[in-house]
Design a protein around this nucleic acid. Structure first.
Lengths: 121, 121
DNA sequence: CCGCATCCCCAATGATACTG
DNA sequence: CAGTATCATTGGGGATGCGG
């Protein structure tokens, strides 16, 4: 991906963007268009697939599935299939996912101030 | 934009995604593909336009200009033109931009652990 | 009910050429 | 030096239909 192309460039300085790499890692994990909405709704407890669809108006099946899969691969969300008929799938936040909470908090605070600042202009 | 469409939907619950709105505000401000690299290089002091181009291999003139403009509009970066010949333009981080530092720090820490975790799989 | 596969579109990004 | 203007590209995301 993108970072690989940076690494391939001889002008690239590893130390210079060590910060970038890791901060970006975090942005990748939570920066998806629907990921924060999903995580937000999973904070309180487990949710079913269609339940999430209703809670997040505007999200397509494809995107919901895709972003849930990425969150699962990152270990932030856990997927449980109940072998029933009709099928039932529940998603819930992992303990690891909850390590994001301080980040959410601080980004929320900054966002509030930033928004207020933009209004005041 | 996107949030407006959410608001227009009757199923939308204001409280539910208040968090999302503000966290997303932050992501918009720093989530651009080159923004963190730019901010990173401006931490130490002022940089000229072409200096930044060299420091950030892979960025096109268009993107560098565009992202710098957004950072400037958000009040994170300051642009100074020196009326000389040849022209000289310096970019530097504002005090407001430095309020992002705690966010960078915590995202950096999380990114390091997240990366290590992915390696270990 | 919970998806996956397919096609399609557009906005973000890139490449290239030109200018005060 | 520090950009602007224009055209080409591409991949993120939406719409639709099918399958276990």
């Amino acid at each position: 991906m993108f970072l690989d192309s940076l690494r391939a460039d001889p002008a690239y300085n590893e130390e210079d963007i060590d910060c970038y790499i890791h901060v970006n890692e975090t942005i990748q994990a939570i920066g998806g268009r629907w990921k924060m909405l999903i995580l937000w709704h999973l904070q309180e407890g487990g949710r079913r697939y269609n339940e999430l669809r209703r809670l997040i108006p505007g999200v397509s099946q494809k995107m919901l599935t895709q972003q849930l899969k990425e969150l699962e691969q990152d270990g932030l969300v856990e997927r449980t299939v109940f072998p029933e008929m009709p099928p039932r799938v529940e998603y819930r936040m992992t303990d690891y996912g909850r390590t994001l909470e301080p980040i959410f908090d601080i980004m929320y605070e900054w966002g509030v101030r930033h928004r207020a600042r933009k209004q005041g202009e």
